[in-house]
């Protein structure tokens, strides 16, 4: 069972640059059809189960809009 992961995107900090979507090796993220307070289509988690907790999305986000948490069973050092 892939370990438990959780990606949290602060939708109102997102500027819709899509870099996280491109960076994710598992296509977990996609751009929403809704716009946030600033009028951007924000990024959101669409396939949470495929997430491997690699943090590429958070690493490549220019606006520190993404937080990543992983389950306790196996830590993956960043």
């Amino acid at each position: 069972m892939a370990r438990q992961t959780q990606v949290t995107i602060d939708k109102n900090r997102c500027k819709g640059c899509e870099l996280c979507v491109h960076a994710c090796p598992k296509h977990v993220l996609a751009m929403s059809k809704e716009i946030n307070d600033k009028g951007y289509f924000y990024s959101e988690v669409v396939n949470p189960d495929d997430c491997i907790g690699c943090c590429f999305c958070a690493i490549t986000c220019p606006d520190v809009a993404i937080e990543v948490a992983v389950g306790d069973n196996k830590d993956r050092g960043e």
Partner: peptide, 12 residues
Amino acid sequence: MKTIFKRPESLT
């Protein structure tokens, strides 16, 4: 759940 990536304190 353990947070492994978040805003650093040295960023406002």
